[in-house]
């Protein structure tokens, strides 16, 4: 599936929920589906510093595609991270760099991208794109 197909799938999933509780229960459920970062990568240099919740992110590279794994100490943040990983993981660096993540707004979670939330989600998306960009430029050089 393309990045946008996965985003549309998420938007579709969320459209089924009629109230905020179901929505957040689903996010909490998705936290459990996050591809977990290996313990050895869970170190400070892979920590994305939000003000409150901590997020660890690792980017691997396999068959021309970037594979993200992550973790967070807050479960709602972890659920949000899981959604972003689901959208961006297993795509080429070029696709990731070019991705427009419209799903966050469409599923009604835009407030989680605001700076005041300080959950590191915004920084994480930036970091994922940075990894992809770095990989892309390495690929171009070779």
């Amino acid at each position: 599936m393309t990045i946008n197909e996965i985003q549309d799938e998420l938007v579709e999933e969320f459209s089924l929920f009629s109230d905020w509780m179901e929505k957040y229960e689903h996010i909490i459920q998705m936290a459990k589906e996050l591809p977990m970062i290996e313990e050895r990568y869970k170190k400070d240099e892979n920590l994305i510093k939000g003000c409150q919740a901590r997020v660890w992110l690792h980017a691997g590279f396999k068959d021309g595609k970037v594979v993200f794994t992550a973790d967070s100490d807050a479960i709602i943040t972890k659920g949000l991270v899981s959604m972003v990983v689901r959208v961006l993981s297993n795509h080429t660096p070029k696709e990731i760099v070019a991705a427009d993540l419209y799903f966050v707004d469409k599923v009604g979670l835009k407030e989680h991208l605001s700076m005041t939330r300080s959950n590191g989600l915004l920084s994480m998306i930036k970091q994922m794109k940075m990894y992809a960009l770095a990989l892309q430029s390495t690929l171009n050089v070779n």
Binding site: W20, M21, Y24, Q52, A53, D73, A74, I75, I76, T77
Partner: peptide, 13 residues
Amino acid sequence: NMHPYDVGVILDQ
């Protein structure tokens, strides 16, 4: 051992 952030998000809702 709930993260304060998670509780804050639910209360905000």
